[in-house]
């Protein structure tokens, strides 16, 4: 399965949400990393035929996805960022309805629903109304609906947003499990999601994908090093003004800083291993999401 994105652009009045993206994706897990407002959701909506591009094309195995129409959507699974559902439907009803609009016959839909409910650990709540589910459970129903048609292309927009740490880990593992033999595009502004499951990372900012590669490639190509430095509390502001500080840990005797810099900032500084989170901070700076999420 190959998706080829050619010069893809989407303009909303005076805002360019997606700006001339050229990209080719094959089977594997792609992590789309960017801050809020980078254009990730608009890009993904175009991949799901929900929005038509202003300019450019998306080709699936060489065919325009908007011309393929239903034939393309037949191989597509999508979990939107804001996962909407029918609150008065039970989990079972909801999945059966989505199966019907995905063109799955009733008998096959029943079997598939049963398997997926087991896989996402929701068999026991299949008769519970959707509005009575916890946030984590709803996301799991969301991934189950996306997988109903066993899609060759799976697009997940911020699938772990709003989940507590244990739910997030569970969800990440589930996505890894489901990513075999298909093209998975996962958008997030949570670095750890990408670190654990993505084979390829796409960095997006201001509507453009400005960098892509494997985790190693990205870490190797970034022109930055990481330094650990213990300082007095009164010096913290000085160091923050001088350098990008990836982390600040307050200690009884002072503070431990994680500084991003090409050069050694101080003779007492010790070099540490660069992580994806450091890269994220380097590229996206102060806009890099809220602290809780970038864990």
């Amino acid at each position: 399965m190959e998706l080829e994105i050619i010069n893809l652009t989407k303009e909303f009045k005076e805002i360019i949400a997606v700006d001339h993206i050229n990209l080719s994706m094959k089977n594997g897990v792609y992590g789309l990393l960017g801050v809020n407002g980078a254009g990730k959701t608009t890009f993904m909506r175009m991949l799901c035929t929900l929005i038509r591009p202003s300019v450019g094309k998306i080709l699936c195995e060489g065919k325009d996805i908007f011309e393929m129409d239903g034939e393309y959507r037949k191989i597509l699974g999508y979990l939107p960022q804001e996962f909407g559902f029918y609150p008065d439907f039970t989990v079972q009803d909801y999945l059966m309805y989505v199966a019907s609009i995905k063109g799955i016959r009733q008998t096959a839909a029943k079997k598939r629903t049963k398997i997926l409910l087991q896989q996402v650990g929701l068999s026991k709540v299949q008769n519970r109304k959707m509005k009575k589910l916890s946030g984590g459970m709803k996301r799991r129903v969301g991934i189950a609906q996306a997988m109903l048609n066993n899609p060759k292309i799976l697009i997940l927009d911020e699938p772990t947003a709003g989940l507590d740490p244990s739910e997030r880990i569970r969800f990440r593992n589930l996505i890894s499990e489901l990513s075999q033999d298909r093209l998975v595009l996962l958008s997030t502004h949570i670095v750890s999601d990408i670190e654990y499951i993505a084979n390829q990372i796409l960095l997006m900012q201001n509507g453009k994908i400005f960098h892509s590669g494997t985790q190693e490639e990205i870490l190797n190509e970034v022109p930055i090093r990481v330094w650990r430095l213990d300082v007095r509390k009164s010096e913290v502001e000085h160091w923050q003004a001088m350098y990008k500080v990836a982390n600040l840990k307050t200690m009884p005797q002072g503070a431990e800083l994680r500084i991003l810099s090409e050069q050694c900032p101080d003779t007492n500084a010790k070099e540490e291993e660069l992580t994806l989170e450091d890269v994220f901070l380097y590229y996206f700076g102060e806009k890099a999401g809220n602290n809780d999420d970038v864990l």
């Binding site: 909506r45 799901c48 035929t49 929900l50 129409d69 239903g70 959507r73 037949k74 597509l76 999508y78 939107p80 804001e82 996962f83 909407g84 559902f85 029918y86 609150p87 989505v98 019907s100 609009i101 995905k102 063109g103 609906q145 048609n149």
Partner: peptide
């Protein structure tokens, strides 16, 4: 209207029958 109000429209339109039979 409820598909949009309940934010279910994204899944609806991205499904196989979303712009036809459904």
């Amino acid at each position: 209207a409820d598909e949009f109000r309940q934010k279910a429209s994204a899944i609806f339109y991205s499904s196989y029958h979303g712009r036809g039979k459904a």
